[in-house]
Amino acid sequence: MTIFVAGVHGAGKTFATKPACQKLGLVHATASQLIKEERGQASWDGAKMVSDVDQNQMALISAARRIRESGATLVIDGHFVLRRAPGTHERLPVDVFRALECSSILLIRCPVPVLLERLHARQDTSWTEAELAEFSKAEDAHSAEAAKVLGIPLKALDSPTAQEVETWLERLSKGMGVSRR
Protein backbone atom coordinates (compact mmCIF):
# COMPACT_ATOMS: atom_id res chain seq x y z
CA MET A 1 0.00 0.00 0.00
CA THR A 2 1.24 3.46 -0.90
CA ILE A 3 0.06 6.80 0.42
CA PHE A 4 1.06 9.55 -1.98
CA VAL A 5 1.73 13.03 -0.56
CA ALA A 6 1.54 15.58 -3.37
CA GLY A 7 2.21 19.28 -3.67
CA VAL A 8 4.38 21.76 -5.48
CA HIS A 9 8.04 22.38 -4.71
CA GLY A 10 8.37 24.18 -1.37
CA ALA A 11 4.91 23.27 -0.07
CA GLY A 12 6.37 21.46 2.94
CA LYS A 13 5.72 17.85 1.93
CA THR A 14 8.92 16.36 3.33
CA PHE A 15 9.05 18.80 6.26
CA ALA A 16 5.63 17.67 7.51
CA THR A 17 5.53 14.07 6.30
CA LYS A 18 8.90 12.69 7.35
CA PRO A 19 8.50 13.27 11.12
CA ALA A 20 4.89 12.06 11.01
CA CYS A 21 5.97 8.80 9.36
CA GLN A 22 8.77 8.33 11.89
CA LYS A 23 6.30 8.68 14.76
CA LEU A 24 3.76 6.36 13.15
CA GLY A 25 6.26 3.74 12.02
CA LEU A 26 5.50 4.20 8.32
CA VAL A 27 8.20 4.17 5.63
CA HIS A 28 8.75 7.64 4.15
CA ALA A 29 10.61 8.45 0.96
CA THR A 30 10.62 11.26 -1.55
CA ALA A 31 9.98 10.31 -5.15
CA SER A 32 13.25 11.98 -6.14
CA GLN A 33 15.17 9.98 -3.51
CA LEU A 34 13.74 6.68 -4.76
CA ILE A 35 14.40 7.57 -8.41
CA LYS A 36 17.95 8.66 -7.69
CA GLU A 37 18.68 5.49 -5.70
CA GLU A 38 17.15 3.24 -8.37
CA ARG A 39 18.82 4.95 -11.33
CA GLY A 40 22.08 5.86 -9.61
CA GLN A 41 21.69 9.45 -10.78
CA ALA A 42 19.39 12.45 -10.82
CA SER A 43 17.83 13.61 -14.07
CA TRP A 44 16.73 17.02 -12.83
CA ASP A 45 18.52 20.19 -11.92
CA GLY A 46 18.37 22.76 -9.13
CA ALA A 47 15.53 24.53 -10.90
CA LYS A 48 13.50 21.28 -10.76
CA MET A 49 13.51 20.83 -14.52
CA VAL A 50 13.16 17.14 -15.30
CA SER A 51 14.39 15.04 -18.20
CA ASP A 52 13.91 11.30 -18.70
CA VAL A 53 10.40 11.44 -17.23
CA ASP A 54 9.38 7.95 -18.40
CA GLN A 55 12.57 6.28 -17.14
CA ASN A 56 12.23 8.11 -13.83
CA GLN A 57 8.69 6.85 -13.32
CA MET A 58 9.69 3.27 -14.13
CA ALA A 59 12.49 3.59 -11.56
CA LEU A 60 10.07 5.01 -8.98
CA ILE A 61 7.59 2.17 -9.53
CA SER A 62 10.35 -0.43 -9.22
CA ALA A 63 11.76 1.08 -6.02
CA ALA A 64 8.30 1.40 -4.46
CA ARG A 65 7.45 -2.22 -5.33
CA ARG A 66 10.59 -3.44 -3.57
CA ILE A 67 9.70 -1.52 -0.40
CA ARG A 68 6.09 -2.72 -0.42
CA GLU A 69 7.25 -6.34 -0.88
CA SER A 70 8.76 -6.07 2.60
CA GLY A 71 5.22 -5.64 3.92
CA ALA A 72 5.71 -1.97 4.74
CA THR A 73 3.32 0.83 3.98
CA LEU A 74 5.12 3.39 1.90
CA VAL A 75 4.46 7.11 2.11
CA ILE A 76 5.94 8.83 -0.95
CA ASP A 77 6.06 12.56 -1.30
CA GLY A 78 6.25 13.79 -4.85
CA HIS A 79 4.32 15.40 -7.67
CA PHE A 80 1.51 14.77 -10.13
CA VAL A 81 2.95 17.41 -12.45
CA LEU A 82 6.61 17.84 -13.40
CA ARG A 83 8.51 20.84 -14.71
CA ARG A 84 10.13 20.24 -18.11
CA ALA A 85 11.29 23.88 -18.42
CA PRO A 86 10.15 27.23 -17.00
CA GLY A 87 6.48 27.47 -17.96
CA THR A 88 6.40 23.94 -19.42
CA HIS A 89 4.69 21.42 -17.16
CA GLU A 90 3.89 17.76 -17.77
CA ARG A 91 1.17 15.76 -16.07
CA LEU A 92 2.25 12.26 -15.10
CA PRO A 93 0.02 9.47 -16.40
CA VAL A 94 -2.53 8.20 -13.89
CA ASP A 95 -1.18 4.72 -14.62
CA VAL A 96 1.99 5.69 -12.71
CA PHE A 97 -0.06 6.12 -9.54
CA ARG A 98 -1.98 2.93 -10.25
CA ALA A 99 1.35 1.07 -10.57
CA LEU A 100 2.51 2.64 -7.30
CA GLU A 101 -0.60 1.05 -5.73
CA CYS A 102 -1.70 4.35 -4.23
CA SER A 103 -4.41 3.83 -1.64
CA SER A 104 -4.91 7.55 -0.95
CA ILE A 105 -3.57 10.98 -1.78
CA LEU A 106 -2.71 13.77 0.61
CA LEU A 107 -2.35 17.11 -1.19
CA ILE A 108 -0.37 19.76 0.66
CA ARG A 109 -1.08 23.30 -0.49
CA CYS A 110 0.72 26.51 0.34
CA PRO A 111 0.20 30.15 -0.72
CA VAL A 112 2.22 31.08 -3.80
CA PRO A 113 4.16 33.95 -2.12
CA VAL A 114 5.31 31.52 0.60
CA LEU A 115 6.33 28.96 -2.03
CA LEU A 116 8.33 31.59 -3.89
CA GLU A 117 10.06 32.68 -0.68
CA ARG A 118 10.96 29.08 0.21
CA LEU A 119 12.31 28.35 -3.28
CA HIS A 120 14.40 31.53 -3.20
CA ALA A 121 15.78 30.46 0.18
CA ARG A 122 16.89 27.24 -1.58
CA GLN A 123 18.70 29.38 -4.17
CA ASP A 124 16.10 28.55 -6.85
CA THR A 125 15.13 31.86 -8.44
CA SER A 126 13.90 30.30 -11.69
CA TRP A 127 10.21 30.44 -10.70
CA THR A 128 7.82 33.37 -11.08
CA GLU A 129 4.66 33.85 -9.05
CA ALA A 130 2.61 33.29 -12.20
CA GLU A 131 4.32 29.99 -12.98
CA LEU A 132 3.98 28.77 -9.38
CA ALA A 133 0.28 29.66 -9.42
CA GLU A 134 -0.17 27.75 -12.70
CA PHE A 135 1.85 24.79 -11.41
CA SER A 136 -0.16 24.71 -8.15
CA LYS A 137 -3.43 24.76 -10.06
CA ALA A 138 -2.24 21.91 -12.31
CA GLU A 139 -1.08 19.85 -9.29
CA ASP A 140 -4.47 20.34 -7.59
CA ALA A 141 -6.43 19.42 -10.71
CA HIS A 142 -4.36 16.39 -11.64
CA SER A 143 -4.33 14.96 -8.11
CA ALA A 144 -8.14 15.25 -8.03
CA GLU A 145 -8.40 13.60 -11.44
CA ALA A 146 -6.10 10.74 -10.40
CA ALA A 147 -8.03 10.17 -7.17
CA LYS A 148 -11.30 10.02 -9.10
CA VAL A 149 -9.95 7.65 -11.80
CA LEU A 150 -8.33 5.38 -9.19
CA GLY A 151 -11.33 5.54 -6.85
CA ILE A 152 -9.19 6.51 -3.86
CA PRO A 153 -9.57 9.23 -1.22
CA LEU A 154 -7.97 12.64 -1.66
CA LYS A 155 -7.42 14.89 1.34
CA ALA A 156 -6.19 18.44 0.77
CA LEU A 157 -4.53 20.36 3.60
CA ASP A 158 -3.63 24.03 3.40
CA SER A 159 -0.25 24.87 4.99
CA PRO A 160 -0.50 21.99 7.48
CA THR A 161 1.72 21.48 10.47
CA ALA A 162 3.57 18.21 10.94
CA GLN A 163 1.01 17.40 13.65
CA GLU A 164 -1.90 17.82 11.24
CA VAL A 165 -0.21 15.55 8.71
CA GLU A 166 0.50 13.01 11.45
CA THR A 167 -3.14 13.09 12.57
CA TRP A 168 -4.35 12.51 9.01
CA LEU A 169 -1.89 9.67 8.38
CA GLU A 170 -2.81 8.06 11.70
CA ARG A 171 -6.52 8.29 10.92
CA LEU A 172 -5.88 6.74 7.52
CA SER A 173 -3.72 3.96 8.93
CA LYS A 174 -6.37 2.99 11.47
CA GLY A 175 -9.32 3.41 9.14
CA MET A 176 -7.87 1.52 6.18
CA GLY A 177 -5.78 -1.14 7.89
CA VAL A 178 -2.45 0.37 6.87
CA SER A 179 0.39 -1.96 7.79
CA ARG A 180 3.19 -0.58 9.91
CA ARG A 181 6.85 -1.28 9.67
Rank of each mutant, 00 (worst) to 15 (best):
R66Q: 14
F80R: 04
S32I: 07
V94K: 06
I105K: 06
S103G: 14
Q41L: 13
V96Y: 09
G40D: 13
H89Q: 08
F80Y: 11
L82A: 02
E69N: 09
H89P: 05
R109F: 03
L100E: 02
P86I: 04
R118Q: 10
A72L: 01
Q57R: 07
S51P: 05
H28S: 03
Q55E: 14
L115D: 11
K36V: 09
L60S: 00
D52N: 10
K48I: 05
V53E: 13
D77H: 00
A47W: 07
A99P: 03
V112F: 14
A63W: 02
R66V: 12
D45R: 09
Q33P: 05
E37H: 08
A72Q: 12
L119H: 13
L100T: 04
A63D: 02
A64N: 00
Q55T: 11
S70R: 14
L34Q: 10
V75T: 01
S103L: 08
D95Y: 01
Q57D: 02
A29D: 06
L115H: 13
C110N: 12
V53A: 14
G78K: 00
R65H: 12
V50Q: 15
D52T: 05
S104I: 00
R83C: 02
L106N: 09
L92H: 11
P113H: 13
I76P: 07
I61C: 04
V94A: 09
